[in-house]
Amino acid sequence: MFSFDATEPFQYEFFRNGLVIAGLAGALCGLIGVFVVLRNMSYIGHGLSHAVFGGAALAAVLDFNYFVGAGLWGLLSGFMIGRVSRRRIIGADAAIGVVTTASFALGLALQARYGQASRSIDAVLFGNVLGVFPSDIAAVAGVAVVSVVVVVVLYRRLLFSTFDPEVAGVSGVNVPAMEAMLMLLLSATILVTVRVIGVLLISALLVLPAATARMMTNSFGRMLWLSPVLGTAFGLLGMYASWYADVPSGAVIILAGTAAFAVVYAVVGVRGRMRMAGLEHAHPA
């Protein structure tokens, strides 16, 4: 006898933890994703998550703290990407492809050779929201708070150096420092959320809320709060739906985001075309 109970999953602490971390991860990825999307950094995000996976596997084998191991490995990968792409013959995208995929392969090999049976590769690749520890929640919350503070305090400088780096530099903004700051926040974001969402899905969570928000507004300020709100909604909805669908939560979170993206795309597509058509006559001197 099937009966639907909307409050059923809330009885379980692991589900409540999962819901909190899914919402937080969605908000954090939504916020950082604004810069990822506007700076065309999504491939860097994709690469970093793969690099982190190698570091995480190595840390597990050597019995090292995950955050230290994966964080150091991520830094090393970033450094190597810089070195390889500076030789000019190889573009940055190819460099990211080589370095991070190698790192990912190393992770797979280590996992297969030394991994414990209890921690399946599936969980790493596709995320495991339900296996979160309170320390994971604390880590995501910590990075989220730091990100919000940085984005608020450096708001105009981050906007200026993202929109117009050359003029920002001339106007006294320390553009390399802003870029380094965003790379650092992106790396930290991936580091703390990748175990929840999964190596293969994290870059989608970085892109979906921001891309959806972008279609809904033409203002940077509005996009900056809309995107985390959407990310949170994707996280909570996906998490909740995954309970009933009995599918890994990372996958359902991304599917929820994709559905929202598609709806907004369809709606804005019609309106946007109408607006563009109106524009051609709207050029008073």
Binding site: V152, Y155, R156, T162, F163, V167, A168, G172, G221
Partner: peptide, 20 residues
């Protein structure tokens, strides 16, 4: 890039307060 006219003009001004 998602910026309005006013946002473009404002970005060259450093903020005096911490709130943007």
């Amino acid at each position: 890039f998602p910026v309005t006219v006013r946002e473009v003009v404002a970005m060259s001004r450093p903020t005096r307060s911490w709130w943007p």
